[in-house]
Simulated scan of single mutants.
Amino acid sequence: MLMKWTGRLILFLYALLIALPLYVVLISAFKSPQTFFANPLNWPKPFTLTNFVSMFKEQPIWSYFLNSIIVTLGSVLLELLLGSMIAYAIFRLGGKMGKGIFALFAAGLIVPSQVNMLPIYSLAHKLGWSDQLYGLVLVTVALLLPVTVFMLAGFMQLLSKEILEAGSIDGAGEWTLFTRFALPLSAPSIAAAASFLFVMVWNDLLIPMLMINGKSKLTLPLAMLQFRGEYVTNYPMLLTGVVVTSVPMVLLFLFLQRYFVAGLTAGSLKG
């Protein structure tokens, strides 16, 4: 009984740790700067939508949205295409070669991306990718590919080899086996990987900060830095931007929740 209540207390404290910052972000979006600095934790009085109106009127927020959508969709689709192909190759090769390729990509998870910032920027500048959305997409794909391969390779190992061997006997080539068998069977796990990648790319600040200079090509997280001044930061506007930026990810999770849970539980039951 003591362990049960201790576990509940720990869960409650953990939920409170998450809920309190979320509460502050939500209520601050509906406060004026004066109200926010006077009572940061109090309910907004008066309740105002001025921050949202100002953001959409004074800032090219739709342009930032479009940039984020282009970068996120382009990066995630390319990640899933390349990652699923590599994971399938690892599964089909098996043995020492398959394990060696998997170990090579797993090693990419060990090196923090921050360590590679200078070489990445230098290479991107030489190739003419700096301050280009397609350059940001390619660099993002390169940095996140080990993560994608690591996730999808584990799911691919759960595929039935008998089904693929039966398809091979019927004359199906590797591309047909990949597109007609492996991808449909891996759909829940690919959707789960897509959910993780969407959140990572959509909220990424470091790589866009490294690659993008022009204001017209800013992504949403990078655009939020405009509300941070040298001496004064407009926190209500900044937190309003956080709310606006989070809405697409919340909607995405609601739509993909079924596939997300299915992907996480894939392979937990066998037989």
Rank of each mutant, 00 (worst) to 15 (best):
Q59N: 09
T179G: 12
V244S: 06
L17G: 08
N234W: 08
A142Y: 02
I169G: 03
I61R: 00
E174I: 11
L81N: 02
G167D: 07
R228T: 14
I61V: 15
I163D: 05
L17T: 11
L252D: 04
V71M: 00
L16K: 01
A124T: 09
T219I: 04
M237W: 03
L78K: 02
V71D: 02
L109N: 09
L20F: 15
Q114G: 10
Y23V: 06
L81E: 00
F198S: 06
F260L: 15
M224T: 09
S84G: 11
T265E: 05
K126W: 04
F102A: 13
I207R: 05
P184Q: 12
P236M: 09
S186M: 15
T240V: 01
Y231T: 15
Q257P: 03
S113F: 11
L13M: 15
S84E: 11
L9P: 03
M117V: 14
V137K: 13
F260K: 12
S168Q: 13
L254T: 06
L256K: 05
G7N: 01
K57M: 08
K126T: 11
L81Y: 07
I169C: 04
I207V: 15
G98M: 09
M209T: 13
S168K: 12
A266D: 05
K99G: 15
L93C: 04
V242I: 15
V24L: 15
Q132A: 12
Y14C: 11
L66K: 13
S28F: 00
L49S: 10
S63D: 08
F91K: 13
L225K: 07
L264P: 13
T50H: 10
N203Y: 09
V243A: 14
L66T: 06
S168P: 04
L118P: 02
A38R: 10
I10G: 01
D131P: 01
L2I: 14
S122D: 08
A262V: 05
R180Q: 14
L238A: 08
L143F: 11
T50E: 07
K57P: 01
S63N: 08
A142T: 13
P221S: 07
T50W: 00
L138H: 02
A187M: 13
I27S: 04
L152E: 02
A19M: 05
E230I: 13
L218P: 04
E230A: 14
V141Y: 00
M97S: 08
Q157A: 14
K270G: 06
M97G: 04
K217E: 07
T140W: 03
W129E: 06
I27M: 00
P188F: 02
E165P: 09
L66A: 08
A103C: 01
L17D: 11
A266E: 13
P44W: 04
L225Q: 15
V141G: 03
R180S: 10
L73P: 00
L22D: 06
R228S: 14
L77F: 07
L26W: 00
S195C: 14
L136T: 10
V24H: 09
M85W: 02
L254M: 09
L136V: 10
F181D: 00
I101S: 01
F37H: 01
A172I: 02
V232W: 15
F30Y: 08
L81G: 10
I27D: 03
N234L: 13
V199T: 08
K31A: 00
F30I: 12
I27C: 06
F181Q: 13
R8L: 11
L206N: 11
